[in-house]
Design a protein around this nucleic acid. Structure first.
Lengths: 120, 120
DNA sequence: GTAGGATCTGACACCGGTGTCAGATTCAAC
DNA sequence: GTTGAATCTGACACCGGTGTCAGATCCTAC
C-alpha cells in the first residue's frame, strides 16, 4: 500500500513513516517511479513501533528488537542474543517503574477530578 | 534543607530542582546569603513532580495541578475548577492509553527475553 | 581569618522524534 | 496529453526538561 493509506490506517504521519523507513524499522518495495509500496503487515508493525516509542525505547533499540518479534506477515523471528536480552531487561525494568509512576499519576488525577466533580 | 541534600534524597539533579523552583513548582526560603532552604515536605513534592513529568504532563499543567493536592506538610488543598478538571480529564485519558501501551510493550520485551533465556 | 566545599546565576547545548515547507517528480483518471 | 492529487527528497526548526560549564558568592569548620 502507499504511504498515504498507511498513514491513514495507523494515524501516524507520513513524515514519521518515511523516518521509520530511513531507519530501517519498516521496509517498502519501490514502484518504478520511486514511490514506496508497503506490505499489509506494515500496519501492525507501525503500531508496535509507536507503542515502543511511547515506552521510551529509542529507535536504535527498537531496531534491535523488531527482528525478534514474530508478527503475522513478517518472516520467522530471530532469537535475541544474551547481550540483547540484557539490554532489553534494563528497558523492561524501566518500563515497569514507568507503569508504576503512571498508575500513581493517574490516581492523583482521578482524585482531583473526582473532588472537582463532587463540589461543582 | 539545602538543595544538595534535597537532590540526594530525591535523586533529582540540583539543576532540575532550581528549574522547578524557578517555575514555582516548589518553594524555598532563602538564607541571608541567598541560598535556598527547602522545607521537609519538598521531598515528597519533588517525587510527585517527577512522576507527573514521567506521565507526560508539562510543567504548566503540573503547576495547575499541585495546588489541588493535599500532601502532608503542604497547606490545605484547593479544589480544581471545572475547567481544570476538564484539562486533567484529557491528560488522565492519555495516561490511561499510555499505560496500555506500556503494558503491551512490557509483554513484548518479556516474550523476547524469555525466549532468549530458554535458548541460551 | 581562611580554606575548601556548597551554592548562586546565567548561558549554551543537547536529544530525537516530529512538523513543515519548497521544489521536483510520479501516478491515475479523464 | 493533460491535469490535479500524491509522493519524493532534503533541509530547517521545534520542544522542554536536563547536562554542563564559568565565574562569583556563601557557609562552615578549623
Amino acid at each position: 500500500m502507499r504511504i498515504g493509506e498507511l498513514a491513514r490506517r495507523t494515524a501516524v504521519s507520513e513524515r514519521s513513516l518515511r523516518y521509520y523507513d530511513k531507519l530501517g524499522l519498516i521496509a517498502a518495495e519501490r514502484t518504478s517511479g520511486g514511490h514506496r509500496d508497503f506490505p499489509e503487515s506494515t500496519v501492525g508493525r507501525v503500531i508496535r513501533i509507536q507503542e515502543l516509542f511511547a515506552a521510551g525505547l529509542c529507535s536504535e533499540k527498537i531496531g534491535w528488537l523488531l527482528p525478534c518479534l514474530n508478527d503475522p506477515g513478517e518472516g520467522p523471528a530471530e532469537t535475541a542474543t544474551p547481550e540483547l536480552a540484557e539490554v532489553l531487561q534494563v528497558e523492561r525494568d524501566r518500563i515497569d517503574r514507568m507503569i508504576g509512576d503512571l498508575l500513581r499519576s493517574r490516581d492523583v488525577l482521578d482524585e482531583v477530578i473526582d473532588e472537582a466533580r463532587a463540589v461543582h
